[in-house]
Design a protein around this nucleic acid. Structure first.
Length: 352
DNA sequence: AACACGGGGCG
DNA sequence: CGCCCAGTGTT
């Protein structure tokens, strides 16, 4: 017996859901996978152009698997959460070269892939293969929380378990893919985070949150994010028509993207030529060249931190010792490298 | 179990 | 300025 919720939702999908997306109704697991990875924590409108670009450049998973890392990161540039791009490559190559290009077709095997968690595994399993697994994303949490009037936080182990159980009882087992698509569309279009369209909602007569006036309080999250400020001083070192470039690594932001020589400071540094020259002498243990410009302070807001910093352009008279982990890149080759938005925004305003 | 990971859009 | 977005991996 299908819950009322499910029937009403599926009826809405046929009668009232006009949301269109290029991957809707898609059955190619590669395309579904690609779209799902791109949309993790990312609004559909933001991911759309990236999806098209990837499909144009890499029509099959083998095309993606054979591409150079840098090419793929450049196409991902600006979308954020760059570990998704790294994992995308790992998984593409695993499927193309180790699995003979055949996408895994069970929930359990899909879940094992790098970059795929419970949400994405359920999405691919249901969309591509018709398997009955309910997706649980931000939309679904919100719809279920409001419909049942549940105030259990969605970002706890207990909460996730509870919502997952509910989500799977509401699932339309005869058409899991359509159902999953419908509930996410519904959350995005009707049961929105702010100013939801309760007046025209097909679930309004049964919605506990609406009945009790809790719509704007649900769902509940237990954790609040803390934001810290970091000070980044980028030295744009050039030698003739080449630039010194670092590729970020470790567990910090912008891993795998490129940057100039960075000094991170605990405090702001005065934009003073003598001080910055001294700083540079310390970092490089002496250099030969001159500072040609110091930018205004630039800002970049991320989810967990605010980056504040300046860009200092330096013309070198002599090449650096090849020990700083910096590589010398010709100006014309810079466009092949992926940079964080903090740097690209600066470059756009102040071309090299 | 907490936390960090980007960038953009909205009220 | 805070919250949210077709979440996941790491500690």
């Amino acid at each position: 017996m299908q819950p009322d919720f499910t029937k009403l939702l599926m009826d809405w999908n046929i009668a009232g859901n006009t949301r269109q997306m290029p991957w809707k109704g898609e059955r190619d697991p590669y395309r579904i996978w690609l779209s799902e990875i791109m949309l993790q924590q990312t609004r559909v409108e933001q991911g759309l152009a990236y999806y098209q670009r990837f499909i144009d450049n890499f029509p099959t998973i083998t095309d993606l698997a054979m591409a150079a890392d840098e090419t793929v990161f450049k196409l991902w540039e600006g979308l954020g959460y760059y570990s998704r791009c790294r994992n995308l490559l790992v998984t593409a190559r695993f499927i193309a070269f180790d699995l003979g290009g055949v996408f895994p077709d069970t929930y359990e095997d899909i879940l094992k892939l790098k970059g795929i968690g419970t949400y994405t595994a359920a999405a691919i399993a249901s969309f591509a293969f018709g398997h009955p697994f309910a997706v649980l994303d931000g939309n679904v949490f919100r719809v279920i929380s409001r419909y049942f009037g549940i105030s259990t936080p969605i970002d706890t182990t207990d909460g996730k378990k509870l919502y997952n159980q509910l989500a799977n009882t509401l699932l339309d087992f005869t058409q899991p893919g359509k159902y999953n698509q419908s509930i996410m569309d519904f959350g995005a279009v009707i049961c929105k985070p702010r100013q939801p369209l309760c007046d025209s909602c097909v679930l309004r007569h049964e919605c506990e949150a609406l009945k009790h006036g809790w719509v704007n309080e649900l769902p509940v999250k237990s954790k609040k994010i803390q934001r810290k400020t970091r000070y980044f001083y980028y030295f744009v070192l050039s030698f003739k028509d080449h630039f010194y470039i670092n590729k970020r690594s470790g567990s910090d932001i912008w891993k795998d993207l490129h940057e100039w020589l960075l000094l991170e400071s605990a405090d702001e540094i005065a934009p003073d030529e003598a001080i910055l020259t001294e700083v540079l002498n310390t970092i490089l243990s002496s250099f030969s060249g001159r500072i040609v410009s110091i930018s205004e302070p630039e800002l970049q807001h991320l989810t967990h931190q605010t980056i504040k910093g300046r860009f200092i352009r330096v013309h070198l008279k002599k090449a650096l010792q090849p020990d700083k982990g910096l590589q010398l890149v010709a100006k014309k080759d810079l466009k092949k490298l992926a940079f964080p938005k903090f740097i690209n925004a600066y470059l756009e305003a102040h071309p090299l």
